[in-house]
Amino acid sequence: DGVAVLPAPQNLSVQSTNMKHVLTWSPVIVPEEIIHYSVEYQGEYESLYMSHIWIPSSWCSPTQGPECDITDDITATVPYSLRVRATLGSLTSAWSTLKHPFNRNSTILTPPGMEITKDGFHLVIKLEDLGPQFEFFVAYWKREPGAKEHVKMVRRGGIPVHLETMEPGAAHCVKVRTFVKAIGRHSAFSQTECVKVQGEALPL
């Protein structure tokens, strides 16, 4: 193949948003050749008790693209070491290891999408389905001075959930944030959305 030694992938990093974790690296370039990569990981248990053991990633051993969705591999809130190597036929590069172990508690949490509807006097919310890790902290209130804010925990996204029965003529407002049990963190609140019985959603 005209390639004596295959260089190891460089610039490993993890992008993590809403508990979806993607490992990326700079591709290894060999003209007119297709390079494959293998990704492996070690949790804290492995590095403490079994330091020689690395576990092949669920989806990227091997893979072609210079990235790997490691979400299914990161299943505890502990530091994970990650490494990648390139292969071309029988040639394999050295392992390249992520400089700092990745912990899912560093994931970026964004406010969830929500859809507010009404069925007659009933205020109904449908939240973005972000997966089983997410619960939703929904705050809702009647838009009038001194109104009391109510709170409801919604355990699952993707299905319409009844929030409250609205009084005719009053605007009712809702905002929501996510909560991730596994890391004990929540996102910022979403935009507030208001709706009035027999009226359309009102701009703020």
Binding site: T117, D119, G120, H122, V124, R155, I159, P160, V161, H162
Partner: peptide, 11 residues
């Protein structure tokens, strides 16, 4: 609601 064809749930 069979008239509005809307469904909602409550836990």
């Amino acid at each position: 609601n069979t008239k509005s064809n809307r469904t909602w749930s409550q836990c």
